[in-house]
């Protein structure tokens, strides 16, 4: 058993290097498929990261009239906090709003001079509401319309940004749906192309398989070296892919960060490295082995 296994591995190893051209073609096709699998994983992960960062920025700001009492606002805050759709309610007093503005724009003399010109605190007290789920803002605004405290509210910021927020949510759900559809189609195409390339490579060996059969070799003794070659091609393709992606991510990361400040792709890559390695190696090895297994099956019927 051990001797046979050793011979199968040795024969597969020799075959992989002796059929250099075919091995390179197989590795190249597997490389394309693994690259696709990795790209889909990265795109999915990064788009989720981007979407959640956009979603996190969605909120509702309630600005209260100047005459509104702080106690009433606190009472309203407690009422809001009891709604299941509300994740967090933050109170920003007039003083805090002024302090935040001053801190943020202290280097802008025009804004500071304008503020001094006004001569009083022009900011209104506000409540900042964040929903548990992106789709729950409508339920919160419905509540605001029926609340007893509506009379205290000067303006609701959500209504002004509503169309933008809703567009983002609709866009993200469309992206998710399209992504699943695209992934399925591309994966099927990649699997079929890989299978056919390996089938053609083994088709070249059909005469050799027939000879082995006539010499008295068992099915696994014949099939084994092809499976070993499939594993070797898968491992090599996965290694090349991992190296290529590491280099691309490393060189692109700073440029991407200048466009999307919240999107650290190298951090995402490092955090998910084991998962990426697993995807690459499992895709490569499984595709190589399953394709070799199916392709040899038809020539073993002698």
């Amino acid at each position: 058993m051990f001797t046979s296994l050793k011979r199968v591995i040795r024969s597969g190893w020799q075959g992989f290097f002796r059929d250099g051209g075919l091995s390179i073609a197989t590795v190249f096709i597997l490389l394309l498929t693994i690259t696709l699998a990795t790209s889909l994983f990265l795109f999915h992960g990064l788009s989720h990261l981007l979407i959640s960062s956009v979603e996190e920025k969605a909120d509702i700001s309630l600005y209260f009239k100047e005459e509104a009492l702080e106690n009433d606002i606190f009472e309203f805050r407690e009422e809001l906090a009891r709604i299941s759709e509300v994740k967090e309610v933050k109170y920003i007093s007039q003083e805090k709003a002024l302090a935040d503005f001053t801190e943020k724009h202290k280097d802008n003399p025009v804004l500071m001079a304008s503020l001094a010109e006004v001569g009083r605190n022009p900011f209104l007290a506000s409540l900042n509401i964040i929903a548990s789920e992106p789709g729950q803002y409508q339920a919160i605004t419905d509540f605001l319309e029926t609340s007893d405290f509506t009379a205290l509210i000067e303006k609701v910021d959500y209504y002004q940004r509503r169309s933008v927020i809703e567009r983002i949510f609709s866009l993200t759900s469309t992206i998710n749906r399209s992504f699943i559809f695209l992934s399925i189609i591309l994966s099927l195409v990649a699997i079929l192309v890989t299978f056919n390339t390996i089938r053609l490579a083994i088709y070249n060996s059909r005469e050799e398989i027939k000879i082995q059969r006539l010499v008295g070799a068992g099915s696994w003794f014949i099939r084994g070296p092809f499976l070993v070659q499939g594993v070797l091609a898968g491992i090599l393709a996965a290694l090349i892919c991992l190296l290529t992606f590491s280099l691309i991510i490393w060189s692109l990361s700073p440029r991407v960060e200048t466009f999307f400040t919240d999107l650290d792709i190298s951090q995402f890559f490092v955090t998910n490295l084991w998962q990426i390695i697993l995807i690459q190696f499992v895709t490569g090895i499984l595709l190589g082995v399953i394709s070799s297994f199916l392709a040899t099956r038809r020539y073993l019927k002698i």
Partner: peptide, 18 residues
């Protein structure tokens, strides 16, 4: 019907290996 990817020695040895 020799195995083209194997040497003469390997071709002959193959019948023993199986």
């Amino acid at each position: 019907k020799l195995l083209p990817s194997k040497t003469t020695h390997e071709n002959v040895a193959y019948a023993l290996e199986v």
